[in-house]
Simulated assay, not measured.
Amino acid sequence: MFDYRLVAVCPHTGARAGELVTPHGVIETPVFMPVGTQATVKAMTPEELVELGAQIILSNTYHLYLRPGADLVAEAGGLHRFMRWQGPILTDSGGFQVFSLSALRQISDEGVTFRSHRDGSSHFMTPELSVAVQEKLGGDIAMCFDECVPWPTTAEEADRAVSRTTAWARRCLEAHGREDQALFAIVQGSVFEPLRLRSASELIELDFPGYAIGGLSVGESHDAMYRILDVLNPVLPRHKPRYLMGVGFPTNLVEGIARGVDMFDCVLPSRNGRNGTLFTSSGRMNIKGSRFERDFGPLDEACDCYVCRNYSRAYVRHLHRSGEILGARLCTWHNLHFLVHLVRKARKAIIDGSFPDFRRRFLEHFMEGAYLT
């Protein structure tokens, strides 16, 4: 029902190519997962996601628990039927949102009391409830409820969060009973290497089918992120998938892949798309800039996505400046395609033995362009 097969490993870096077998299909890794927070990837239909090459999407337990409710989704036949997405789905635990979106919250060893960011109503989220909600949602992969500390934080705060995350992971494992759904643990510890190693060791002992790396891309430097990935790469189980949560900037993806990461997700491509910021092979681009007013070329000369094949920079700029919804849709489509195919190209390079060259060339070209306005 669920399996991970290692296909190739780069002998010069930690980059891995694999196959993740789920009830709704085989995922070729490394993979970028578009974020469908509320059972939809903003501005995109499921059919369009298939067309641009998405293999798996992520939905959010916190948001779906609050609205429309897990019972309603279960009544509809689960997330796959509810949103008409036939591929694999990963649901996060809701932990990050509980800690980041709730203005008032109280953490105890039992769980977290929080107020909804929507209506102020009070809720008590426990590891058992997070698992129960995710089982009703019916994703292929569920995540353990964990404590994600803010940035910056102290070693003492991170230490307490690691202890609580391990205890909650045990409770999630005991509560989880859905055989057609894999439960991943989440390694915490902020930027403190001993705490990361301790968290990984405690969770590996519990023998989860996959391991996520949480608590990064929350404000720390890229170098700090890479340092933690370097520490975890040799200790995380070789034959189990590794998921770096909430990371989607192109250079971070390539550097994460070089350090053994298999799975990524982030709202960045859709959020940037709605703001008119594009990822291109030569750097980031602000399509609203005046230099593109009479530029009738594609968004990215090196891209073969639907948008680049059919629309010009001048037209997309016009849409954004006019406040037209199509502008946000086209930019989101392009950004998602760019990241999905970036990791697909990295996978091919790992398999054919050229990943170090691929990494060097991409980083050089992307950073050369920096930010085009």
Rank of each mutant, 00 (worst) to 15 (best):
F2M: 10
D3F: 04
A17G: 06
G18Q: 12
T22K: 06
G25H: 09
G36D: 14
Q38I: 02
T40V: 15
V41L: 05
T45S: 14
L49H: 12
A54K: 10
P68C: 12
P68N: 12
A70S: 14
L79R: 05
H80P: 02
R81V: 09
I89D: 09
V98D: 02
A103D: 15
E110K: 08
T113Q: 07
G120E: 00
V131A: 03
G138S: 08
G139I: 07
I141A: 04
F145G: 00
C148D: 06
W151N: 05
T154P: 07
R171A: 09
F184V: 13
G189R: 07
V191D: 13
V191R: 12
F192V: 10
P194T: 15
P194R: 04
S201K: 14
S201M: 10
S201A: 15
A212D: 08
G214F: 10
V218E: 14
L229M: 14
P234S: 11
Y243R: 12
G246R: 11
G248W: 08
T251A: 14
I257H: 02
A258D: 13
D262S: 02
P269H: 02
G273Y: 01
G273P: 04
L278Y: 04
I287N: 02
I287P: 04
R291T: 10
C303I: 02
C303G: 01
C308V: 11
Y311N: 10
Y311S: 09
G327K: 09
A328R: 13
L336F: 10
H337V: 03
F338G: 11
K345N: 13
K345H: 10
D352Q: 08
D352S: 13
S354F: 02
F355A: 01
R359Y: 00
R361I: 14
L372D: 15
